[in-house]
Simulated scan of single mutants.
Amino acid sequence: MLAVEASLRAQGERQIKEGDVVIVYERHDRMKAVIVARNGELQNRFGVFPHNEWIGKPFGCRVVGKKGGGFVFLLAPTPELWTLVLPHRTQILYVADISFVISFLELRPGSVMLECGTGSGSLTHSLARAVAPSGHVHTFDFHEQRALAAKQEFERNGVGHLVTVTMRDIQGQGFPEEFVGGQADAVFLDLPQPWLAIPSAASSLRCDGGICSFSPCIEQVQRTCEALTIPEFTDIRTFEVLVRTYEVRQEFLQTTLQCGTQFASDCLFKPPPQKRQRPQKGRKRETRPVIAKPYPDTKGHTGYLTFARRST
């Protein structure tokens, strides 16, 4: 994934080859990750798309299906796109929370990051990009199958050299002794009982290093903040990140005088006719204004982010 991004920046474009992970983009809420295979094919509502026709094309190109006459875009994988298409093994963090975490933990190239737990690896991909090329992410998960699946995805997506996956129960065992003495620049906790891991995190963080705990319930936040009040931490703050997505499109509008204030909600949006007539010569083409409205499936609360800073 990072290799694809770096190559695209350096060369301007990169051609798709066998074994690459491609994000097949239909629309902003309909995407799919596909591994390009010789003689493979993708079938969807737009037709049949043979993988052989993808090989040699640049990322970002548009390809037309053999049946159905539709088309899709073949995009290079990025952490943001991967978050939208990855296989869910656990609840994941989305872009709004991820960007907030990276910003408040002040992650930069060369940072050493401790993440617990790995889960589906959504956050880990963005952490790896933030600390690249000289930093490293050490991610821990107590579940063996999840850890192995995540490790395989990191390797396939080109971030394996930046991420070390370890199967370990951080709540019960704490972080490995190799990090004791302030070897980490930041710590992220996504655990049912994060307060149990805070003493170990304090011994692993450098002075002025940041810690973040993600919890879906406010009761977890309260216990975490109590544990953070030990002398090693200061600047304790909790945030809830909410994003409202807008959909912008062309739409037919009802313009009759009957659309008064009381009827605006019923008359504003008129569905387009099922069959549009081709305009006759000499007649002005009907135009459709552009409208914007909140997207109906906008995600609301995902969890609370609690931050603190390691003091002397």
Rank of each mutant, 00 (worst) to 15 (best):
L2G: 07
V4D: 12
A6P: 07
L8S: 09
R9L: 15
G12H: 12
E13Q: 11
I16W: 06
I16A: 06
V21S: 11
V22K: 01
V24I: 10
D29C: 02
A33H: 10
V36C: 02
L42K: 08
Q43W: 14
P50Y: 12
P50K: 12
N52L: 09
K57Q: 14
F59Y: 14
F59D: 06
C61S: 15
G65K: 06
K66V: 12
K66T: 13
V72E: 05
F73P: 00
L74C: 02
E80I: 06
L81M: 05
L84C: 08
V85M: 06
L86N: 08
H88W: 08
R89Q: 13
R89E: 14
Q91H: 01
Q91F: 01
L93P: 01
A96H: 03
S99C: 11
F100K: 14
V101E: 03
F104K: 13
L105M: 12
R108D: 04
E115L: 02
C116D: 05
G119R: 00
S120D: 09
G121S: 09
L123H: 01
T124N: 04
A128F: 04
P133E: 09
S134W: 09
S134F: 10
T139H: 03
T139V: 01
Q145Y: 10
Q145M: 08
Q152V: 14
F154Y: 15
R156E: 15
V165G: 09
G172N: 08
G174E: 03
P176S: 07
A184N: 00
A184K: 00
A184C: 00
D190P: 00
P194H: 01
A197L: 07
S200Y: 05
S204T: 09
S204N: 08
I211H: 03
S213D: 03
E219V: 07
E219N: 10
Q222I: 11
R223D: 08
R223T: 06
T224S: 03
C225H: 03
E226K: 12
L228H: 03
V241F: 07
E251P: 00
L253N: 12
Q254W: 14
C259W: 10
G260R: 05
Q262D: 15
C267W: 12
L268Y: 14
P271I: 07
P272W: 01
P279V: 14
P279R: 15
Q280G: 15
G282E: 11
G282T: 07
R285A: 13
E286K: 10
I291R: 05
P294Y: 04
P296A: 09
P296S: 10
D297I: 00
T298M: 11
T302F: 03
L305F: 06
T306F: 01
F307L: 10
F307C: 04
R309A: 02
